[in-house]
Write a protein that binds this DNA or RNA. Structure first.
Length: 678
DNA sequence: CCGCCTCGAGTTCT
DNA sequence: CTCGAGGCGG
């Protein structure tokens, strides 16, 4: 090795000149859209600079254009013809469809040796791209376009995390086209949308739109800032240098070896037959909400390349692969009206009534908008087109209003100054986002309170549903729970859909509710700030209803988990004249809550907090939590470092993850049963 | 006083 | 499930 020679001044000056020219050219392209160098000229300058810097590495400055990614935006969005068309996939929506597809494939091939294996992987909801490598270097990246011709997005794709710019030779084939999906994780999407919102920009309706928008940036620097990722799902033209892989699963290993990001192993299945493939699809669907990225289905491919070749393609899609679509959970519909409903606490909640939209197996007609600020934030008006997502939490949300589709200038929602149900004054406390109907006798509030009173986790009066309550309030003048205990069979049979038999059953249920555990009764009362958990604490501490009712604020403060706010709230409730009358009437009618047993201090779960997650097989979650409480423990809903044990069943998601993170003990249902000795 | 943890309340449809 | 807020330990 010869000693490095210091660069002559001429080389140094030339390098500086080249850097300045290249930067100037870049700037013109990115910001002024006013090219003055052709691609060829630009490449020549750049090549010259690379040569100089290779010869004298000390000339290479960190900010040199050669250190930036070497793709120019000049050809951005120019048409690119795919060497092999990017076909779409035939879609199936059910297991039966899938099996029919399997059969049609066999009918087409009819070879005696036709025994396909299948690969199953998630269908990532992103933007399909093709990356063309020549002699190991990324040459062109393009969108799918119409399948034949896409757009050149090389400069942008080059800035996506995980996209190799060069492939390690010699294992890299001469011409090598990979196909993949550029996507954004759910977490990154949420974070970025918040930021876009904070900056006053337009939010994106979903991760896919966000990814697509990010790839369409004029300035690749902007694309580089977006949290884009790549997953490679297949190959186009590939002139393998040496022995070509015989199957997709082998090719996937080779792609991985070439540093391409592929679907993680735990989401990739090589199935021996169609039944195993269908099972893998079902498993993916079950895990849908736990995945880091949005998926809209699974892709099933015949694994063996020789079979793929035999099957070939129709005009628009290959015969050897199929997209198994999951029911969509996102859709678009039109807002017919914005109504304001009143709940049991009197809170006014705006609700969007929409054109019915089938989504994930149900038809959505109402969507809560939570509060008036939300309506203003979205700038939602009647007639607007909205995007709706029904995610893992089942409850639909308006994620975006498509303002560009608005026609005319519909009025903004006029927030009611009077309760839309009873006309009473609306109170809007300055420190709260919600406003409230001030009339305790408001029919909406009455119905809400009665519904809560009879609900499963309170007095558990079976048959006392929304429809029945509405009738009782409207036609029988039932205004409080005490009135339930005065109902007669004669009165009930006058109601719609209520015969002798249902009336008798309902009365039995109401009768049985007179003797429910004290904790349930306290929960049923709907005391502000007292829910299931605090009701249990009060019941345990005081033992009988008379003692709870008589407790002073000081005595209430002695209850663990009860502070100023809750204590005052309880005392006020029992002092309220109206409540006194209703409670006395209930007691007179024979309501007599069962005294609470003191907590066991010697049970296996004494002093422990247990959290359940996922599905339990042999009992309901309620039953399991009851067992924990019986054995002295506390059942909670969220995992923290104070959690003693997490019991995880199949389908466990974020809570299990958090437990592992915090190194909290995890058990399965069988272990839990052994601990509880049942 | 702050930060963590947990609770309460609202939420859709069949 | 998520948000906001109450309770409480540090």
């Amino acid at each position: 090795m010869s000693k490095p020679v210091p660069p002559p001044d001429t080389a140094r000056r030339r390098a500086e000149e080249l850097r300045a020219d290249l930067r100037d050219a870049d700037e013109r392209y990115h910001q002024k859209d006013d090219p003055h160098l052709s691609d060829f000229e630009y490449d020549q300058l750049k090549d010259e600079l690379v040569t100089l810097e290779d010869r004298w590495p000390e000339l290479r400055t960190p900010d040199s254009p050669t250190q930036a990614v070497g793709f120019r935006a000049s050809s951005l969005f120019a048409p690119v013809v795919h060497r092999e068309p990017m076909l779409s996939l035939e879609k199936v929506n059910s297991r039966d469809d899938f099996l029919a597809w399997r059969k049609s494939m066999a009918d087409f091939d009819a070879g005696a040796d036709f025994a396909p294996r299948f690969t199953v992987e998630p269908k990532v909801d992103g933007v399909a791209v093709e990356l063309v490598y020549e002699r190991g270097r990324l040459k062109v990246a393009s969108t799918r376009g119409d399948g034949t011709t896409g757009e050149d997005i090389t400069a942008n794709v080059a800035r996506v995390a995980g996209v190799p710019h060069a492939l390690s030779m010699p294992s890299a084939p001469d011409v090598f086209e990979v196909r993949g999906e550029v996507y954004v994780t759910k977490a990154d999407f949420l974070e970025w949308n918040e930021r876009l919102l904070a900056e006053g920009g337009e939010t994106k309706a979903n991760p896919r739109n966000f990814a697509a928008g990010s790839l369409k940036q004029k300035d690749p620097e902007e694309t580089a800032r977006r949290p884009l990722r790549l997953l490679v799902y297949g190959l186009g033209v590939a002139n393998w240098a040496s022995s070509a892989p015989a199957s997709w699963h082998e090719a996937r290993e080779r792609l991985r070896a070439l540093a391409f990001p592929v679907v993680p192993d735990e989401l990739f299945t090589l199935a021996d037959d169609e039944n195993a493939a269908a099972a893998a699809v079902a498993s993916l669907e079950a895990r849908r909400d736990d995945l880091a990225f949005e998926i809209d289905g699974a892709v099933i491919k015949v694994d063996q390349y020789d079979l793929q070749r035999r099957l070939g393609a129709r005009s628009r899609s290959p015969r050897w692969a199929v997209a198994y679509k999951f029911p969509p959970r996102e859709g678009r519909t039109v807002v017919r009206a914005i109504e304001v409903s009143v709940g049991r606490t009197g809170a006014l909640t705006p609700v969007a009534v929409v054109e019915p939209l089938p989504l994930g197996g149900v038809t959505i007609t109402n969507i809560s908008l939570h509060n008036r600020q939300e309506v203003e934030r979205l700038d939602l008006r009647v007639g607007d087109t909205v995007m709706i997502v029904r995610a893992g939490d089942v409850i639909p949300h308006v994620t975006k209003v498509l303002h560009e589709l608005r026609t005319g200038d519909p009025p903004k929602l006029a927030w009611p100054e009077h309760c839309p149900v009873c006309g009473a004054t609306v109170d809007a406390p300055a420190d709260e986002p919600l406003s409230y109907c001030t009339n305790l006798a408001c029919p909406s509030q009455v119905k809400g309170r009665l519904f809560h009173f009879g609900s499963r986790r309170a007095m558990d009066i079976e048959g006392l549903g929304e429809k029945l309550i509405a009738q009782l309030v409207e036609t029988k003048g039932v205004a409080d729970p005490a009135a339930l205990y005065r109902l007669t069979a004669a009165e009930l049979v006058e109601l719609e859909r209520m015969g002798e038999k249902s009336a008798a059953t309902l009365l039995e249920q109401i009768e049985a509710s007179k003797r429910r555990p004290l904790a349930r009764f306290l929960n049923a009362l709907g005391i502000p700030n007292v829910g299931e958990s605090t009701a249990r604490d009060l019941a345990r501490h005081f033992g009988t209803f008379a003692r709870v009712r008589a407790a002073t604020v000081e005595q209430l403060l002695e209850v663990p988990e009860v502070g100023d706010v809750t204590a005052t709230s309880v005392r006020l409730f029992f002092d309220e004249e109206r409540n006194v009358r209703v409670l006395d009437a209930m007691l007179a009618a024979g309501v007599d809550p069962l005294p609470e047993e003191a907590a066991k201090t010697d049970g296996v779960f004494a002093g422990k907090t247990v959290v359940f997650t996922g599905n339990l097989e042999t009992m309901t979650r309620d039953e399991a939590e009851e067992i924990v409480r019986k054995l002295g423990g506390k059942a909670s809903g969220s995992v923290s470092k104070k959690t003693s044990l997490v019991v995880a069943g199949p389908g466990a998601g974020s809570k299990l993850e958090k437990a592992r993170e915090l190194k909290v003990a995890v058990a399965d249902e069988a272990e839990f049963r052994r601990m509880a000795r049942i």
